[in-house]
């Protein structure tokens, strides 16, 4: 089962990478961009038996550094044949 983990910097944590992307967008002439924050998308292909709590444990133990990052788990709805 496909599961996506989005890892983003916590609010208030300075994001130099996002700032650089913002500047580059402005340099290309794109107006109206107020802020850019960069994060990570980690895709997991999991056995159907792997529960939400286990994915959350993976995030806390490794995928995100909860000192500076938040994470959001998005599980793909099981398809007819995959269910």
């Amino acid at each position: 089962m496909k599961t996506r983990v989005y890892v983003t910097l916590k609010k208030g944590v300075l994001d130099p990478q996002g700032k650089a992307i913002h500047h580059a967008l402005e340099g290309l002439g794109f107006a109206g961009v107020n802020e850019v924050r960069a994060g990570k998308l980690i895709e997991l292909d999991l056995d159907p038996g792997v529960g939400e709590a286990e994915v959350e444990a993976m995030c806390r133990k490794l995928l995100a550094n909860i000192v500076i990052e938040n994470f959001r788990i998005e599980r793909e709805a099981p398809t007819e044949e995959g269910a």
Partner: peptide, 11 residues
């Protein structure tokens, strides 16, 4: 140790 080491401010 507490805290984290992030990308340098000037990149």
């Amino acid at each position: 140790l507490p805290g984290a080491l992030m990308r340098n401010a000037g990149l």
